[in-house]
Design a protein around this nucleic acid. Sequence first.
DNA 1: CTGAAAGCGCTTACAG
DNA 2: CTGAAAGCGCTTACAG
Lengths: 351, 351
Amino acid sequence: MKSKATSFDIAHMAGVSQSTVSRALSDSPLVNPITREKIKQIAKDLNYKVDKNASNLRKQQSKTLALLLFEDPTADDSSINPFFISMLASITKATAAAGYDLLVSFQNLNDDWHAVYEDSNKADGLILLGYGSYTDYEYKLSQLEEQETRFLRWGAPDENHPGISIGSDNFQGGKIITEHLLTLGRRNFAFIGEAGDGAPELKARYLGAVKAISNFQLDSNEQAQMIGQVDAISTELDGYQAATTLLHSIDDNVKLDAIFCASDLMAIGAIRAIKEQGYDVPKDIAVVGYDNIQVSGFSNPPLTTVQQNAALAGKLLVDNLLKLIHNEPVDDVLMQPELIIRQSCGNEIKE
Amino acid sequence: MKSKATSFDIAHMAGVSQSTVSRALSDSPLVNPITREKIKQIAKDLNYKVDKNASNLRKQQSKTLALLLFEDPTADDSSINPFFISMLASITKATAAAGYDLLVSFQNLNDDWHAVYEDSNKADGLILLGYGSYTDYEYKLSQLEEQETRFLRWGAPDENHPGISIGSDNFQGGKIITEHLLTLGRRNFAFIGEAGDGAPELKARYLGAVKAISNFQLDSNEQAQMIGQVDAISTELDGYQAATTLLHSIDDNVKLDAIFCASDLMAIGAIRAIKEQGYDVPKDIAVVGYDNIQVSGFSNPPLTTVQQNAALAGKLLVDNLLKLIHNEPVDDVLMQPELIIRQSCGNEIKE
DNA sequence: CTGAAAGCGCTTACAG
DNA sequence: CTGAAAGCGCTTACAG
């Protein structure tokens, strides 16, 4: 490989000092415009680019952000949470728009990841993206904070977690979609998805559903209830199995008429199971999901679901992280999800 | 922010020279084991991490790879080619496994992207990922090559393109899926997807289909033909519109019985259009796609399609790029795609 | 407006 | 096995 030109080479060719080259290329007003143009032309001819390692070292910054993605270790490439994919895209774009580079890393919760990027000056700040329990994680977050690493977490703001976070209001999401089902006349609900502390996002969706039901009872004096809940993580197969279990375990006297799945993929699996058992969706049982992944518009029936705004989320994460880096104050943000109504909730039973 | 510890701080605390600290932390055998452990302990206590900018500057490397993703500028975040998402994941993992970091960037074909990363010493090599015409692109590739930038391109190996590439055999993919349809008794084909030079990957799929048909005629002396082709880019809507156009334009005397779509998303749109026109899939018209995206297993009917091995592709790209960086010889690779048989091709008509 | 010089934090030949 | 020193390629105070 040809050895690359340095600012000294340019200086030599332009007949000026290396300092002047550096100034000219960074558009310093201190340089004579004619000199500047001459230097820029030479730099262009030589395809000279400022060495980032040197300039970052000198300036003590990296103009780089790092995205740490925490995934379920069992997930293979194709099963990465689709919402995260959208986030990844929007984060990448927002980062580029701000003139920063993005270092992407898929992390395992067990890795010794904390602080590596920022501490080694490869990144000016970190974005942590991942669902799930942060218990193992707590300690590392505190460490990040203690080291005064600039980082932002995707997830529900929570006083028990160190650092600032931007998240979607999962409780509200579970509430509005359940309210919609109640409006449509559904009364006997089941939830497919983990509702324990290991999956706080899903738990919040569950609690939102429960809240909607109890509000409804209070307001209308009508009966409505959550009659079942089955743990399930994320895939189509998880949803299929959970729904199968659910249908077998439900008391025949109670007519289950709505299943709220904590993810679209699980909802699609649940629909498959329900059909197999001879029920119709949505006539017998309404099924709704969460995420509004691309598939959900094309499932049969098309899925009613809750959408989180990934584009906005990515932009907020990047913009606020940059504020943090520039020592500007940043607050937690709780984004409101949006209800996407399609056919799987049974709108037609009202006709 | 606390100012970070440097190797001099460690040296001072350990009562040794800074050189010894550097050696100890890089596990040089030149350091007394006891000294080394002492230094490592202090470094750990201080949460010291080697400054990458400094060490990279000194070593003239970055231990970083850059992934440049070229997307259709019209695509929004959610419509990024699903295959690329899988690639992104596998590339990320392969990069991490090799001890490298990954810089990710979504590029516009018009950007002045060429060479920036490597020339500025932010990356040791580049991976270029994107479908479509490389005409605008050609010049920049030559420049990369001229500058002796280490880069690898995803796409069909092609003598007209500078540089080494790893790609999937799209011609073969189009051929095998068409052969499968022929085996199932389909005779009158249409292709949905661009078949021009602007989309060489899709064109190759089309040509593979045409080849399968002409081979079949030769071998069996039976009639089979490609009776239509409609340009379409990528989305469900594109497929829907293209199929609608197709059904309206086809001569009534010829019974179209198979549509090969250049992507799964378009196939799903095509199925929707076909059903709307009152035809059954696959009874009247078989529909097959390409990509094997997650949706395709859940469409109605489930989609027969062609799968490219993204996990292997990502690994090959990274491994071979590293070889290039280490001045080892690397060849073009043409990967063989795999036929995924589901119901949309009409297997049941043989029963 | 320009140049000489210091220094960012490392790694590594050189000398011992 | 260890240390003193050079130098990677920049940016930027300092002096003019």
